[in-house]
Design a binder for these strands. Sequence first.
DNA 1: CGAGTTTGAGAATGATTGTTCTTGACTGAC
DNA 2: GTCAGTCAAGAACAATCATTCTCAAACTCG
Lengths: 178, 178
Amino acid sequence: MGRPRAFDEDEAVEAAARLFAVHGFEGTSVDDLVGALGVHRGSLYKVFGSKRGLYLAALRRHLDRDVLPVAAAVAAAGSLPAALAQAAAAYDAGPAAGLLLLAAAERAAADPDAAALVEEGVAALETAVTAVLGPGDTAPGLAEALAATVLGLRLRGRATGGRPAGAAVLALADRLTP
Amino acid sequence: MGRPRAFDEDEAVEAAARLFAVHGFEGTSVDDLVGALGVHRGSLYKVFGSKRGLYLAALRRHLDRDVLPVAAAVAAAGSLPAALAQAAAAYDAGPAAGLLLLAAAERAAADPDAAALVEEGVAALETAVTAVLGPGDTAPGLAEALAATVLGLRLRGRATGGRPAGAAVLALADRLTP
DNA sequence: CGAGTTTGAGAATGATTGTTCTTGACTGAC
DNA sequence: GTCAGTCAAGAACAATCATTCTCAAACTCG
């Protein structure tokens, strides 16, 4: 009953994720969102409650659709070099691949809910790396360092427009398993 | 001639760097800056021209006082584990150590001048790692990956409030030189 | 068809944004 | 002591911010 919705909620969240991934939370205005999403202001507030609510929905979608699948693929990979290369390449290609980074740098300090989502994404990547390292290799912090390498390379690529991260992380992985 | 300045310009830039490092560029208002710096609004605009001008001054100061010295120490270190551990530890301790990360994630895409400063800082870290790797170890991308590890761990520490990055990067360095 | 309900359209809200203007305080040189 | 020049204090600026309000439009059910 009632007038039917003229927009797809998932498409709206995806478009919002793209905007937030490029300009950040504070750099994206509600006017920007209304214009890019094709969703009316009132509907946006009816569905998501606030700009922050939409941001958290976009971040969660980014985790579910971009980050966690990559983590699963890493955990399932046979070797460490293959896993890291796959992680870097897949994460490079994602359209909203900057959201997790931007959320970590910009929002986590100010928004506990965003911080929890960032924590979830980072933990998933680290758990996956730990799994592929194997039971005999439990040097404390190694998985954290390798996951941080992927994220750091992605950040570097965003900022300086350099090459994709795949080659660099491969060079590191080759040195780890001689 | 003229009325003497009632604030120290370098102290003002340092305080601004601290604010920007925590809240980012868009998350820090001019009112916040005026309140924390103890510098009057008009004087701030007379000296720095704009909020963006003050931000770029803070970022440059962060490079000169925090990033480039760390890069120099890394380049001068004897071994790779020592160099990476020193980099991670020193960078963790810096008061404004989040500025480079935040600039890379938040500002580089929107501000070419900020992007150039980020590029300078990242390049300095990578050059330093390349130097300490030695002439026989020129695997392309390895230095990029290691520098990215330090930055990524720092980002992770900021976001999730985890342990300092020193231990993790040490675990990685130990695996690189058996 | 009409009652009930949900959405879309767009104006309006008050607060906050970055920036500028005006006025008065202080200084060194003449 | 006055004059020119630099700075501080604070109000004021237009623009933009996130959010809400009002009302017409479009659907389902009876």
